[in-house]
């Protein structure tokens, strides 16, 4: 099995009963150099395929689950990874069995170029925004979560939110959708007169607009059959 290469660490050894996850030393040259610099071991060549256990990483640098959020940061769904991952650029930085000065906090590791005052977050008062309940990300992979969040919401629904997420509206097969930003969402159903197609082989019939459902900005719905409301 794997044995942690961090100095004084017994993860993976018989003496260690607890199980920890191991992260492989990166192959990438730059990353490897960073890891070598970080792991305080003299006269020891750190090579890819060796491992460092999770105890030497700050929890913030370990990705244990995938969190899907909408664009406002509201969590829609969570999925725990079978195998935890490291954030990009994460390096081992906690060495409990070494002098304290060999471990370092996450902040100290930031490069001068990256270090800057964090952008002030806009304060969003969820209570004041009636559209919060309906806001969601339109990534298809989380469409199920999206639809649920909408269905569950008793909050105020708006045309703009609906239009923003127009792709998640499920409509009957054979229908088509037309989207006119800020004005209208229209669903149409066309038919083709089949008797005309029999006249000649090369005849191409023009589809007839049979049914239409129009949704206006006031969320009023109008249904048409052969252009009659």
């Amino acid at each position: 099995g794997h044995r942690c290469i961090a100095p004084g660490c017994n993860s993976g050894y018989d003496s260690c009963k607890e199980k920890y996850h191991f992260f492989t030393v990166p192959k990438d040259d730059i990353q490897l150099r960073e890891w070598t610099k970080a792991i305080p071991r003299k006269d020891f060549l750190i090579k890819p395929r060796q491992v460092v256990c999770e105890r030497h990483f700050h929890e913030e640098e370990i990705l244990r689950k995938r969190i899907m959020t909408d664009k406002d940061g509201t969590i829609l769904a969570e999925a725990v990874y079978k195998i935890p991952k490291l954030k990009e650029g994460a390096i081992p930085s906690i060495f409990p069995n070494c002098p304290k000065y060999l471990s370092y906090s996450l902040k100290r590791r930031k490069l001068p170029l990256i270090r800057s005052s964090s952008p002030k977050k806009k304060k969003t008062d969820k209570k004041k925004d009636p559209q919060m309940d309906c806001a969601f990300n339109s990534k298809p992979s989380i469409e199920i979560a999206i639809t649920d969040s909408i269905n569950d919401s008793v909050g105020i629904f708006s045309f703009s939110k609906l239009q923003e997420n127009v792709n998640s509206i499920v409509f009957p097969s054979g229908w088509s959708r037309h989207d006119i930003p800020g004005k209208l969402i229209m669903f149409s159903f066309f038919i083709v007169k089949t008797e005309e197609t029999a006249i000649t082989e090369n005849y191409i019939p023009t589809p007839i607009l049979y049914k239409r459902v129009c949704l206006g900005v006031n969320l009023n719905v109008q249904c048409f059959v052969m252009n009659i409301s």
């Binding site: 639809t147 909408i150 998640s168 459902v213």
Partner: peptide
Amino acid sequence: LNCIKDLEDILKKFDTS
């Protein structure tokens, strides 16, 4: 219209009517 489902229900009903 109160939610996306309302619209989907209308479309479903109108499709089969």
